[in-house]
Design a protein around this nucleic acid. Structure first.
Length: 605
DNA sequence: ATAGGGTTAG
């Protein structure tokens, strides 16, 4: 029997033989004992015994004693908020401490609204909040994405003068980050006198989770310059996420190294982020390797791996990992199915994909979202089932959006079906979607059908709407630096060399039977000019630059903002044979891996 | 007198 339980027995099971005589001294002593035992309670039962004793001996009227009861019951892992509240309600004039502990208790129990209600009561009863009140409240606002309430309470912070408290500031940064108000978070961060690791963690996470990837990396750099902070796991995961979205493989690798050096055991979140980073930066094998070595995988790990394989056009592998996931007894959710369906679509596994779609609805009772329909339209489109795809869109029980119609439009283009292409485009424009690339696609289809009048009509329409295809660019990493090439850009310092290389490449391409596909140039210029423009597409410039600088055998990795044109696709396939290079290009949606004259997308994208 | 902030992924 432990010392505490002996104490419990002596306190609770036996009555004191006579009422204490020197009441002051004796009562204080007993009170102190109660408090000591309170700290050692291991479950609610033990706690209730102490509570009973406190009531019995009248210690409850000591505010300090009552506060401690509420705090212990509200904050211990075995505690009960209901019970804590009932004790709280017995206190005549609860102070800030009592409200604080109860608010924190509610936040701990994920009852954020309750926490805010309690603050409201605090406010109405005229109890002034202190520096301990606010962090919990801002956490509640962050979780609820309650910007209005958060800003209101932020006002109170100024009123009671805690705007310079480090903890209050950190929780404010987090709250504004979660409410998608990064500017507000930055404003607080910038005027802080001193910062802690939590401040950096909060501001970096705020940028990462709001898609401000470059700023996130910039802040990480500043943090490293300012002091020798030991890199923290959560910060490194935010950085990894930025690398993933920017396609920054080098920095991603460094972050991996930093994780291995600084964190003793990588958890599921970290390992999943690493897999995602490698796969989305073009290193599928490295991602697969980490995936295979992982001991504990969760649903998200599978999700990341499946959509990663989908992006690389490895449909069969994606499906086999999906069945592995089901064998492990993990329940697939709607996002996993987006990965599975897009894997089927990118790999041309039409029947498998349609089967998966049925199984998702019937067996797993997942209500298809627009993204699912987009994948299935893609899938049918690839197989040339354009009529069926159109029917599917028209029979969708949910609101059609631009994604599904755009899928149909691209499929019509691949299969040269102008009739359905026109329907898709008409619907796109009707729902007020006016992407320049959609106009370009339709115009290309008219051009192929030699319907010049319609081509002109579209061009006029684009001009009248002020639509311009935003300039395409390609990024390529050479010696740890990322170089950006914009189409037709001749401002690069090594332009002469690049142009010379382009010239050489074209000369060799001619022997392989390449002729420029000038239909891809939608400008009112003569054929020579069209050929010139085609030559200056950013991807070709990037490849030329990489061929000059990267050693033989190392793959060329390119990330681009737009999808590539047919000509660049054909061109790159041939370059991969002639120069015996693997060229990996990431566009908005997926990877193209050019090797030995073929592309992993099998000419459908 | 009692306590507190950042927890990251598709």
């Amino acid at each position: 029997m432990t010392r505490t339980s002996v104490l419990h027995q002596s306190l609770l099971l036996t009555q004191p033989e006579e009422p204490p005589k020197g009441p002051e001294l004796n009562l204080r002593l007993k009170e102190q004992e109660c408090l000591t035992i309170l700290k050692t309670c291991k479950n609610l039962e033990e706690f209730k015994k102490v509570h009973a004793h406190v009531l019995k001996w009248g210690f409850f009227w000591n505010p300090f004693c009552a506060s401690n009861l509420v705090a212990t019951c509200a904050l211990s892992h075995w505690g009960s908020m209901d019970y804590a509240c009932s004790i709280f309600r017995q206190i005549d004039e609860p102070g800030a401490f009592d409200f604080n502990t109860l608010i924190r208790g509610f936040v701990k129990e994920v009852e954020f609204e309750e926490a805010l209600f309690l603050y409201n009561e605090m406010f109405e009863r005229g109890v002034e909040p202190d520096n301990f009140t606010f962090p919990a409240l801002f956490k509640a606002c962050a979780k609820l994405q309650a910007l209005k309430e958060g800003m209101q309470i932020h006002g109170h912070v100024f009123k009671v003068g805690f705007e310079c408290d480090l903890f209050v500031q950190n929780s404010l940064i987090n709250m504004y980050g979660k409410c998608e108000k990064v500017e507000f978070a930055s404003a607080i961060f910038k005027q802080m006198d001193q910062k802690s690791v939590a401040s950096w963690s909060a501001i970096i996470a705020a940028h990462a989770s709001n898609g401000l990837w470059s700023e996130c990396l910039k802040l990480f750099g500043e943090m490293n310059n300012e002091k020798c902070w030991r890199p923290e796991e959560s910060i490194l995961v935010s950085v990894l996420s930025a690398c993933t979205h920017l396609g920054a493989l080098d920095l991603g690798k460094c972050t991996h190294g930093s994780l291995i050096r600084n964190i003793s055991a990588l958890n599921v979140i970290v390992e999943t982020s690493l897999i995602d980073m490698y796969v989305k930066c073009g290193c599928l094998e490295k991602g697969l390797c980490l995936f295979r070595m992982m001991a504990d995988k969760c649903q998200l790990t599978y999700s990341v791996m499946i959509s990663g394989l989908a992006m690389h056009g490895q449909g069969k592998e994606a499906l086999s990992i999906f069945s592995e996931m089901l064998r492990e007894g993990l329940e697939p959710d709607d996002v996993v199915y987006v990965g599975v369906l897009s894997a089927c679509s990118h790999a041309g596994l039409v029947n498998e994909g349609l089967l998966c779609f049925d199984r998702m609805k019937l067996e797993y009772r997942i209500v298809p979202t627009v993204q699912h329909y987009g994948c299935v339209v893609d899938l049918m489109g690839r197989a040339g089932m354009l009529g069926e795809a159109l029917e599917l869109i028209q029979s969708m029980p949910i609101q059609q959006n631009d994604v599904v119609w755009r899928s149909l439009l691209s499929a019509s283009k691949v299969h040269h079906n102008l009739e359905i292409g026109e329907i898709a485009a008409k619907n796109l424009f009707q729902i007020n979607s006016h992407h320049p690339s959609d106009y370009v696609l339709l115009s290309n289809m008219y051009a192929r059908a030699q319907r010049w009048y319609d081509v002109a009509k579209i061009r006029t329409e684009m001009a009248s709407k002020g639509l311009n295809q935003s300039p395409g660019f390609s990024l390529v990493e050479v010696a740890r630096k990322v170089y950006k090439f914009v189409s037709q850009d001749r401002s690069h310092p090594a332009w002469d060399n690049i142009y010379e290389m382009i010239h050489q490449m074209e000369w060799q391409l001619k022997f392989e039977g390449y002729s420029p596909d000038i239909s891809q140039v939608l400008r009112d210029v003569d054929e020579d000019e069209k050929r010139e423009r085609l030559k200056g597409h950013s991807q070709k410039l990037a490849i030329a630059f990489a061929l000059i600088h990267l050693s033989q055998g190392s793959p060329i990795r390119i990330a681009r903002n737009l999808r590539m044109c047919n000509d660049c696709h054909t061109y790159t396939k041939l370059i991969s044979v002639i120069y015996e290079r693997e060229i990996i290009v990431r566009d908005r949606k997926r990877f193209h891996r050019f090797k030995d004259g073929t592309c992993s997308c099998r000419d459908y994208w």
